[in-house]
Design a protein around this nucleic acid. Structure first.
Length: 187
DNA sequence: GCCAGGATGTTA
DNA sequence: AACATCCTGGCG
């Protein structure tokens, strides 16, 4: 397994989102297999925060590829994205689901009552399981000790419409490993 | 299946 | 001040 550094995130957000399926996400003692992602295009995508949030447009300009973009959704859940820029298009990849690999005891402690297979089966669930919150926003975690993304492969790549959005629902920019039991929803 | 919970950035 | 939002667990 090879560590992915900033250069990997200097390509099209769709390429990144697809390529991350099957990779391993390391976060301070826990490891999860990435089984679901979504791509967002900061230039031409009404579902991307840049479409209606000036502060997000500033964020894209001010930070490097590979920076964490973390925000609170519905006042309840932190959602974890990676900034992608430097290729043909720029934008974000949202982590939507992880399969627990190691550090499962820590994840269980943070998500009491959850079945193991569901510990990271959703964008809000996975941040809770890993202890990710707003303090991670803007950090260059790819090279941080105990953190990073490492290469892997999907068993069965699948794509479909993004979840939970009301605009640009025709775009099939959600990617996943169809063989995983830890998807946030069926494709 | 439906719905409350309740933070944040943005606009009125 | 009011609004919309890249969600989830609990209850039916």
């Amino acid at each position: 397994m090879k560590r992915l550094l900033e250069d990997y995130f200097k390509q099209d957000p769709l390429t990144c989102a697809r390529g991350l399926i099957g990779c391993h996400f390391h976060w301070h003692g826990c490891v999860g297999r990435i089984v679901e992602t979504e791509a967002y295009d900061s230039e031409d995508d009404p579902a991307c925060h840049t479409w209606f949030r000036p502060s997000t447009r500033v964020f894209v300009e001010a930070h490097d590829a590979g920076t964490a973009y973390v925000y609170m959704n519905y006042g309840v859940h932190w959602l974890f994205n990676i900034l992608v820029k430097g290729g043909a298009r720029s934008g974000f990849v949202l982590f939507r689901a992880l399969e627990p690999v190691s550090g499962i005891e820590q994840m269980r402690e943070r998500r009491p009552g959850a079945k193991d297979v569901l510990l990271g089966a959703g964008p809000g669930r996975l941040t809770r399981a890993l202890g990710i919150d707003g303090s991670v926003h803007g950090s260059r975690f790819l090279r941080a000790a105990g953190c990073g993304v490492f290469t892997g492969w999907p068993a069965e790549m699948i794509a479909g419409p993004r979840i939970g959005i009301s605009r640009a629902t025709d775009l099939h920019w959600r990617f996943g490993d169809a063989a995983s039991p830890s998807l946030s929803r069926r494709f």
